[in-house]
Design a protein around this nucleic acid. Structure first.
Lengths: 187, 187, 187, 187
DNA sequence: TATGAATGAGGATTCATTCAT
DNA sequence: TATGAATGAATCCTCATTCAT
């Protein structure tokens, strides 16, 4: 039932944005009475926290799998980018809400920060592995991790906003070479 | 008068977030009667559009200056990054609202998209100049522009959220080399 | 089972006040399912009536015992005062609810009035006995009974509200002489 | 306008009890929109505090006048009883709410205690004057003050609940002799 | 008989917008 | 033009009560 409410919440967010997620609309979307929501969540905030955590779960799992896999750091970055992009791409409104939405910062600041920190932490570890293993130049790993995350988010956002949809493969094909080789022309 | 309301709006947003911007508080901050606001703006939406456009103006102007300046494409990217970061950094709450806030996305989707598109367009032109001039490798200029914008936004966000403040210089010092040279180690 | 619910109700009222007595909390306190309450009481009102009557029982019994006992009218008044005060004192929240709470007055007006009337009736009888027996002056027995009840209630209330707790003995020591002898200085 | 809301509140309390005073009903009684109430009171609690204080004002004034008047302590007690009884008598529901109502204790405990303490304090001073002046026997003035207040309250309550209305004069005629002379028969 | 999930009416509060002065 | 009181729709949340299992 909590799962049903989760899906209803995702649907409402997708359709009307996070600001459009009222308990009333949630209840209607879940085909449930308004009061029933409060049998499963103490408050709207509790609901949002649950939605946040639930949406974050699969990313968390796959992040850890990728981080633990046997492959080059570059391979891991590629895999992370692809995975992350696919998720973000799939439910854009939801992920805006998870990571960015300023209107819920007051309620979920801790959760948003934790999620972002977690993603950056995993990327940072991969980058440090790559540096230690001689794959990457010595760099501010955390700063680069932030840049990669930001780049992916923006690519996803623009792709969804824009008219010319690009596949995850295309996007990874742009992202990875730029971060790996840079954009400067070398003779 | 509209300008006075703009500044009052910025002040309220900075202090209480976008969700805290009510007509009442706006009027108090502007030392004006609540009803008077409606003599200058048809609605709250109209006000927000004005605020959005007005806040965007200085960035627009400087973007154009940088784009028109005589320097290498790399120099322009650096200058853009520094300028953009400084602005975002300076009024974080405001820019959250301008770029991220989902609660106004319904109202200002067009404006937000236009702003983003404008920034990306300018960056794209610079990148294309660099490619044409032999400075940069031939690449998907628009995709890279998006990546750069995303990276800057994320760096700014993390910097404000985090405990270890970094100066614009430091941030540009991380950003530019990565995009220019990439992170791969070359013997 | 009804008795179990009664005790649970008293516990909840004592801890959270009458406004805090919800069916949910009652059920939890009684270690019973919420729906089960309605197998024993038609409604919340029925429950409150039962609680009211049940709480009133021991007072009723002791009142009758005192009234039937062999002692002077003065002795009976003293005993009544002490007994009543001890009860009220012991479960103040409960007695607030029984006697004062306006939020249930709509529901339990009849019961509250009956209880008050009963107490006053017993006191009145004692006073009339005293008058008939030559112990007391001829007076409006019912009015005096009301005054005595009111005085006891107020003393109890103030004692619980105040910082300086007085024992039942002390209170009776103030109450009885005043009513018996008056406050006027003689000679 | 606050006064209009005060009177509407008194009317609603008189008709439906304190538990029946909702913002909606208040607004209807005051022939005002629901939201307008909040232009004059920050919250329901603020409204209740205002009502409390406003209702208490005339009693306060008259109490002080009586206390300052030139007459015997007995005369003052009589005057106080009569005045208090008249007020309580006039708006019983309101005064229940002011002094007794357990359902608003949480909100107005401080105010209720202060009012009760104030009344008791004035009575105590009168009693002490009487003791000092040789009118009254030396007694626990505060305890007696509480008893007098309680007696008045109960008399008023019973009079309103009962079928046989008594005039203030009658009630004072019962109250004062009992407290002054006591009920014991002196040959 | 026991359960507890589901219900929906009701209540406090906020706020963009209107309009008479 | 300026004002700010008045409005009422919208929102979160509570809780007595019902009913299928």
């Amino acid at each position: 039932m909590r799962d049903g409410l989760f899906e209803a919440a995702v649907a409402v967010i997708a359709e009307r944005g996070i600001a459009g997620l009222t308990i009333e609309r949630l209840a209607i979307a879940a085909r449930v009475a308004k009061g029933s929501v409060y049998n499963y969540f103490r408050s709207k905030r509790g609901l949002l926290q649950f939605v946040h955590q639930k949406a974050y779960e699969p990313i968390n799992v796959q992040m850890d799998e990728i981080a633990a896999s046997r492959q080059t750091a570059r391979g891991k970055l590629e895999a992370m980018a692809r995975m992350y992009f696919e998720h973000v791409n799939q439910e854009r409104e939801l992920f805006d809400f998870l990571l960015n939405d300023a209107s819920v910062r007051g309620l979920l600041k801790a959760e948003q920060d934790a999620l972002r920190a977690q993603v950056i932490a995993v990327l940072t570890v991969i980058l440090e592995e790559g540096i230690a293993g001689g794959e990457f130049r010595p760099l501010d790993a955390k700063g680069v991790a932030e840049m990669i995350l930001g780049a992916i988010r923006q690519l996803a956002e623009c792709e969804l906003a824009g008219s010319q949809p690009r596949s995850p493969e295309e996007i990874v094909g742009v992202l990875v070479p730029v971060f790996l080789e840079g954009i400067r022309k070398t003779d």
